[in-house]
Structure formats: structure tokens, C-alpha cells
Design a protein around this nucleic acid. Structure first.
Lengths: 239, 239
DNA sequence: GGATCGCTTCGCTTGGGAGCGAAGCATCGG
DNA sequence: CCGATGCTTCGCTCCCAAGCGAAGCGATCC
């Protein structure tokens, strides 16, 4: 356990892994830039992560594309970030427009996070289309219909249960749950397909298109052009 | 993220955290022994873990009892161990009777792991009393009845869904899923209450009592006095 | 085929932190 | 009170590994 944690425990490697949490594959040079270290240093780090099977690599011409070796690694990183967000003492950190974009919406390996991800999860729970606990979640009959309207046919999946499993993932900026698991991944993919959201270059942040604002408002009653409600205001609105 | 991972990444601290994954609280001296370091070294480590809020402490007389700060930390450690078990290259490790006991059955924070934990999960899934996916799981009507017979009244819980959520947890010795989440915790607690299993001193291993062997056979068709079936033998038996 | 680019290997320096012994500070027993 | 126990703080040593510059190797472009 110590070896794996130590690999993640180095700042440069943590930056690399955080970048790869995007789900996409990056070249060694891109990752060196993201980690803010020189090429030789990054190369050594990538070799270590590769040897420990945390990463996988594909050679393509003179580029080497690195990616996370498995969803298991992504989950581990998620859980570490969740602990880091909740358990570490709060600390000053400067804001930038780049940070703002990440706060609004970003990918978390294969699903959506940030105010967008949390907002969707909140809406689904508030309308009883999804039931979430700390451990897991399921889609109600109402939810199956909603997802069907969005073009996600849950009944078509060959699973032992007609109800779709999903998984809560602790959002490290919002400090609340968003939707992960198979359902979260399908929803994120569908949003990309519908061009409701688009990836930003060199960042895990996603941009919401005008079509997306329309879609999210219609489907989930979400309007992310407004600043996020505080926890207190949210409770008052619910009451 | 790097800071939290670095804390877990030190061998001595990893030993401490692994010991505390038991779920119980231990004194500083006990943890120093478990980590195989001197008292001053352990004290420094505990201070760091405490400052990062990974641990909590209770002063009791001249003893200081340390425990994991939250289930979130336990989950993070589980996920790191899961990656360590699956993704790291296999390596030689000597066996001991102490290891054997851990392989047979142990606690994993608040639920059961090892051959016992995996065996229970396998039996529940094979009999369609629980449905498990990679992300989550649910109890079937059949399962609700079984748990009722064991004295676990799932219907009494005030949850949004009548079905109990549970969570698969990758067993780092068996490399297969066992039952975690609220259901796993309730089941483990009930097994302790029924005196089917007992904690061993200074170890996360649990001992199965004669009553336990009887109970596990009746409830799950489990006989752990025999060596575990290989994956191949298990498939052949199922066919 | 010479220049360029992407990435790695080699050799070296440096800093952070893990570890322990000794001493200091509480708390408990008698 | 006085010694014993549990734990921490202080001061120190030592080692590991992160980092970079220079050089090497392979693929690509024109």
C-alpha cells in the first residue's frame, strides 16, 4: 500500500495523474508541462508509474501517449482527492479564471463533476428520479423515463437488474456528491454527443454550449449562468 | 492530493493506517510496535496524520487512543490497497501462520474480508440474494428474507428505498469482491453479536468459532475449514 | 540526408524527512 | 511524595530520491 501511495504522493506525479484523470491520453511532453518539471524528470516519473502499472502507454510515431491503466486507478485517485478536500485543513488558494472554469464543470475520468455534475445529481435526487445513499444509488421508474427521453435507453442494457446502478462520487470542490458509475459515464457521454458540453484544451474543464444551457434547463431545471446557491439558501429553497 | 497520498506513502505510516483499518482505536505505543518504529518516530507520524485530519484521538488517562477520522479515510485506504493488489507486479512474500489467519478472515474497517468475506459475497450472489455490479449492489426479495432470518431487519431501516444498498469492495488478497457498505457493516456486526466470529488480539484477523462454522454453513453453504477453491475449480463446480 | 523533434539515459547535486537517543512532561500507583 | 509508565519534544545523523544539464537514440519532416 505504501508504495502505491508514495507514487501518488510526489507533487509532480500527482499533477501528472490529476491531468490524466481527464480520461484522455497525453504525451510525455504535455505531462511534463502539466507537472511543471523538465522532460527528464517527467520521463523518470512516467517510467515509475508505468512499472507500477498505474499507467499504460501507446507508442504512436515519435509520440508516446500515456493514460491511466484502469478505472480502478481513477477511483483510487478520486477517493484520495475526496479525503484531501474534506479532511485537510482549509487553506488559502488564489482564484483564477482557469480555476473558475474547473469549478463550473469538469470531467472526473468518465463522468461529470463541478457545479454542473453536482447540480445534475441534486436535480435527479430532488425529483426522485435517482435515489442516492453514501454507498450507492439506483434509478427510479421516473428516472428511467427521463434518461429515455435524453436518448439513454437503460432497459437495453443487459444487466441482472432492470434498475441501473450508479455510484456517488464526492466532488472535491463542491464537497457534495455527483453521479459516477456506469450511469454517470453514460450521461456524460450523451452530453458530449448532444454537444451540450465541449472539452477545453489542456484542461479537465468543460464548456457548456448555448445548446447545453437550454438542454440542462429543460432536462434538469439547471441554470448554471447564475452563481451557485449557498448551502443555507439551498435548504431554504427546499423548505 | 499529493499531500494526503504522501502521508499514506511512508511505510511506517502505512503500517499504522493498516492497523487502524481494523476500525478499533489503538494507543500510540501499540501503533509504534505495529509500525516497527521507535516511540518518538511513531509520535511524529501520528502528529502528522492528526494534523491532516486523517486520524482522530481520544485522551484517556495517560493513554492516547488513535482511530481513523472517518469512513471516508477507510474507503480511501481500501481503494489504494485494491490498486496495490491488482496493479502492482506480483512479488514473492513469505507465508506465516499470522498471514494464514488474515487470509481466512479479517475485518475491513466495518465489514468482513478474506476468504470469509468473499465466500459470503459469492454465496449471496450465486443464490441471487444480492445482485452486484462493479459500482454497487442491491438486495433482492430473497435476500431480504435471508437477512431477516439472520436477525437483520432491512425493512426497519428508514431509507428512501426498501432495498438495501451495498457496495462491492475489492478484496486485496482474494482479488475478488466482498460485501461492504451499510449492508456489509450490518452483517459483520451481526456475526460478532452472534459470536460466529471473534476478533484476534493485535491483528485484523478474525477467528471463526465452532458456532460460526455451523452458522456460515447453514446460512451461506460455506465451509471454510477446507482450502479455498481455485478460480478454475470454482467455474467447473458452477458448470 | 541533414536538421529537428520527442523522449530517454547518464551523472551529479541537493534538500527534505525518517529515524533514534536523550531529555522533558504529564499521569497513575502506592 | 517518588518512582514508573505513556507519550512528546529536541537535537542530531543519514539516506533516498527529485531535479536538471548534457548527451544519446529513434522517428519525422522537407
Amino acid at each position: 500500500m505504501a508504495e502505491v501511495a508514495a507514487l501518488v504522493g510526489d507533487p509532480a506525479r500527482a499533477n501528472i495523474l490529476d491531468t490524466l484523470l481527464d480520461g484522455r491520453a497525453f504525451t510525455a511532453t504535455e505531462l511534463a508541462f502539466a507537472a511543471r518539471v523538465g522532460a527528464p524528470t517527467a520521463s523518470a516519473h512516467l517510467a515509475k508509474l508505468l512499472e507500477a502499472r498505474l499507467l499504460a502507454v501507446v507508442k504512436q510515431g515519435r509520440h508516446r501517449y500515456y493514460r491511466l491503466a484502469s478505472p480502478l486507478v481513477a477511483r483510487m485517485l478520486e477517493s484520495i482527492m475526496a479525503v484531501a478536500a474534506i479532511e485537510m485543513p482549509p487553506r488559502y488558494r488564489p482564484r483564477s479564471s482557469r480555476d473558475e472554469a474547473l469549478l463550473l464543470g469538469r470531467t472526473c475520468y468518465d463522468h461529470l463533476a463541478g457545479r454542473l455534475g453536482v447540480g445534475i445529481a441534486d436535480a435527479l435526487v430532488a425529483r426522485s428520479q435517482v435515489v442516492l445513499s453514501d454507498d450507492a444509488g439506483e434509478v427510479t421508474a421516473d428516472g428511467v423515463k427521463l434518461f429515455g427521453d435524453l436518448g439513454i435507453d437503460l432497459a437495453a442494457e443487459k444487466r441482472p437488474s432492470p434498475r441501473r446502478f450508479c455510484r456517488p462520487c464526492l466532488d472535491f470542490t463542491e464537497r457534495r456528491f455527483h453521479l459516477a458509475g456506469a450511469l454517470g459515464a453514460m450521461l456524460a457521454r450523451r452530453c458530449f454527443d448532444l454537444r451540450w458540453i465541449e472539452r477545453r484544451r489542456d484542461s479537465r474543464a468543460v464548456a457548456i454550449t448555448p445548446m447545453g444551457h437550454e438542454g440542462f434547463r429543460n432536462a434538469f431545471g439547471l441554470d448554471l449562468r447564475q452563481p451557485p446557491a449557498t448551502e443555507r439558501a439551498r435548504r431554504e429553497a427546499a423548505a
